[in-house]
């Protein structure tokens, strides 16, 4: 499996570049991942989403969808699109060191 050097750490990634081992992620890695996809600064809003994704993944074993984030973490859909422009589902997962969500909604 491919590895990549992010924020000085070597992490395993899939064909699309998403991290494959959630245990290799930590909060120090998130800003580096964010920079890779053009998000220069992680605000409290970003962190709220990232931390929810991590907690939810730990419980459910899969990445939450946008709808799940908006209803369970109380982050309005509009805000998700502002925080992670254009492709919020993929971008939030990437920064949280998770695979992209598989659910349709």
């Amino acid at each position: 499996m491919a590895t990549e050097l992010i924020g000085g750490l070597e992490v395993h990634v899939d064909d699309e570049g998403f991290m494959t081992d959630p245990n290799e992620w930590n909060e120090e890695l998130a800003p580096a991942l964010a920079k890779e996809i053009g998000i220069d600064e992680l605000t409290d809003g970003h962190w709220k989403v990232i931390r929810f994704l991590r907690e939810d993944f730990a419980r459910e074993g899969q990445t939450a969808t946008l709808r799940r984030v908006s209803t369970m973490a109380n982050v309005p859909t509009k805000e998700l699109y502002e925080l992670f422009p254009k492709k919020p589902a993929k971008k939030m997962s990437y920064v949280a060191g998770l695979k992209k969500p598989v659910g349709c909604v």
Binding site: E4, E16, I37, P85, K86, K87
Partner: peptide, 11 residues
């Protein structure tokens, strides 16, 4: 390589 989100080219 990070994922290519192609923000600029999504038309």
């Amino acid at each position: 390589m990070p994922p290519k989100f192609d923000d600029e080219t999504t038309d």
